[in-house]
Amino acid sequence: MCEDILNLSAMQLDALREVGNIGAGNAATALSQIINHKIDMTVPRVAILPLGDVPDVVGGAEVMVAGVYLKVYGLAPGSILFLLPYDSAFYLVDMLMGRKHGETKTLSAMDESALMEIGNILAGSYLNALCHFTHMTLLPSIPALAVDMAGALLSVMLIQLGQVGDHALVIETEFSTESSGVKGHFFLVPDPGSLGTILTAIGVRS
C-alpha cells in the first residue's frame, strides 16, 4: 500500500516512466497545436522523493510560479499540477492572446482563464492517453489556478500524500519551446491507493 513506493522494482519504475511518456507526449502535441510552436519534452522522470524534497524539482520552494491544479477522478485517482515559472507563464499568455513577446506583465482574469484552459487541455490529453494505455477511465476535475511560491502550490498535493507516508511518487516531465522561452513542469501524482491499480492495469503488479 502506502509505503510500497519504496519497494518498486526497476521494471515497475520503467513501466511508470512509459506511462508518463505516453501521457506527456500526447499533452505536448496538444500544446504544440494550440500555440503553433514546436515543443520539446524531457524523458519523464519517475522519482520517489521525501515530501520535503519535491519543491527542489522546480528549483526550490520559494521560486515564483503559476500553477494549474486538477484532481484526477476514476479508478486510479490522483492529482495533476502544471507549474510554469512566472516569466514562462507570461510568455505563454502572450502567445495565447496574440500579444508581442514580453507584453504581458500581470495576469488579467482573461489571462488566468486562458492558463487554466491550457492546464485543462494538457491534463485532458495526458489522461486520454493513459486511458487508452491502461483501459481505465480517468477524468480531470475543473482546473484551479494560483500564482505563488512553488512550495506553497506543491504542498497542496504533498499534504494528501503526507497522510499515509513520508514519500511522494512523482511522474514529472519538463516542457519547453525552443524559440519563446516557455518552460513548464507537468506533475502526475497518484493518490496512495492508486499505485497498485495502475501497476495492475499495465501488467507489472508484483
Binding site: P55, G60, A61, E62, D148, M149, A150, G151, A152, L153, L154, S155, V156, I159
Partner: peptide, 17 residues
Amino acid sequence: KVGSSPDTLISYGLGSC
C-alpha cells in the same frame, strides 16, 4: 529546527502548512 542567537531559522514557501 532549534537554535540560538545570532542564528536565523527560515522555512520557504508555506501554503496550507
